[in-house]
Simulated assay, not measured.
Amino acid sequence: MSKVPLLRYEGVPSTSSSIPWDHICTDSDDDEIKDVPEKITIHVFGMKCMKCVNKIKAALGEKKGVNDVQVNLEEKTVTISYIPTQIAPGDLREALDDMGYDLPDEVTLNVGGMTCQTCVDKIERHIPTVVEGVVKIKVNLENGTAFVVFKAPATPEQLVEAIDDMGFDPSLRRPPDQCRLNIEDPVSIKNVQLDSCTLHIKGMSSPACAAAVEKHILTLEGVESVILHLLAAKAEICFDPKLTQPARISYAIADLGFPSEIMD
């Protein structure tokens, strides 16, 4: 039974899996990128006026590792320039949430049946008109995916149904808390019960780092699948508890140079 990599680089362009392992996030790379800022844009609801803008700028601006904060009231976004080795994107989202603002959910769907840019444009134009709550949708023809930012009352299931009604073949990516073995796989005939865990991983500053971490996790005995959230700085891992445990996985990631801790 093959292991299943399920990466989700939230809002960040993906990198090729052909990048040489020894050229990704090595110690020498750390010296070069440790002070290089990254930018993320977070959709934020509940901002109404310049008082909100100033409040967000002041609260985020005083955090160590944050270089600049730009707030766009019209587009309902907050763009933050930060040093990834000093503060994690997940901490920035948490800070906004603690301030009482509403952060929408995100999901990545697999979409089969797309053959050209016309298909991409059709989905991106149509879905916000039929599913209430869709804030943004970005379709990637090459990867066969749709990244959707949404809020209530929209649900991932509604998004799948709407894209299916258009004649495409969408599906939700399998979350670790629904770990299942393929019943058509002969190996699955064995009574194997999979478990899942979520790890908070520090130091991932780019898609290349995330790819390195994902590749390393999948080499570990007992690991079956990974969903890696770069901006949230976490990995959701499906594993066989008879072969490994969350603590062992966490130690292995730390040995790679990315400190991690078990979140659940």
Rank of each mutant, 00 (worst) to 15 (best):
E214R: 12
T244M: 05
G222H: 07
K242R: 11
H229R: 08
V226N: 09
T198A: 13
A233W: 04
I201C: 00
P207R: 08
S196D: 15
I217P: 00
I217E: 04
S205A: 12
A210G: 07
L228V: 08
E224N: 11
I201R: 00
P207M: 06
G203T: 00
S205Y: 05
I201M: 01
K234G: 02
V223G: 04
S196V: 05
C209P: 03
L194G: 04
K202M: 10
L228E: 04
H200I: 10
E221P: 02
C238H: 01
K242Y: 09
L218Y: 10
K215Q: 15
K242I: 05
K215H: 15
I201H: 01
C209H: 05
C238V: 06
L194E: 09
C209G: 06
L243K: 15
T219N: 12
H200T: 09
L218C: 09
L231A: 09
H229C: 01
G203D: 00
S206C: 15
I217F: 02
A212E: 11
T244E: 07
C238R: 04
V226K: 03
K234C: 12
D195A: 15
A233E: 13
V223M: 07
A235Y: 02
T219K: 15
P207T: 01
A208F: 07
I237R: 04
T198C: 11
L194W: 06
S206L: 05
S196E: 14
T198R: 10
A212D: 09
H229F: 12
H229E: 07
A232W: 05
I227C: 06
L231C: 00
H216C: 03
H200A: 14
E221Q: 14
E236W: 01
T198E: 13
A208H: 11
A233M: 07
I227R: 13
M204E: 01
A210R: 06
G222L: 07
M204D: 00
A232R: 10
D240W: 10
H200Q: 12
L231V: 14
K242A: 14
L218S: 09
L194D: 08
S196H: 15
L230V: 07
A208M: 12
T219S: 14
D240M: 10
C209W: 02
A235V: 03
C209S: 05
L243W: 07
K202R: 10
V213M: 09
L243C: 09
C209R: 05
G222K: 04
F239C: 05
C197Y: 06
D240I: 10
V226R: 01
C238F: 05
F239W: 03
I201P: 00
M204A: 02
A235T: 07
L230N: 04
L230M: 08
S206K: 05
V226P: 00
V226M: 03
A233F: 03
V223H: 05
L199K: 00
L194P: 03
V223T: 08
K202S: 08
L228R: 02
L230D: 01
L194M: 12
E214A: 09
K215V: 04
L230T: 03
L243R: 15
L194S: 09
L199M: 03
S205G: 13
L199I: 02
E221R: 14
A232E: 11
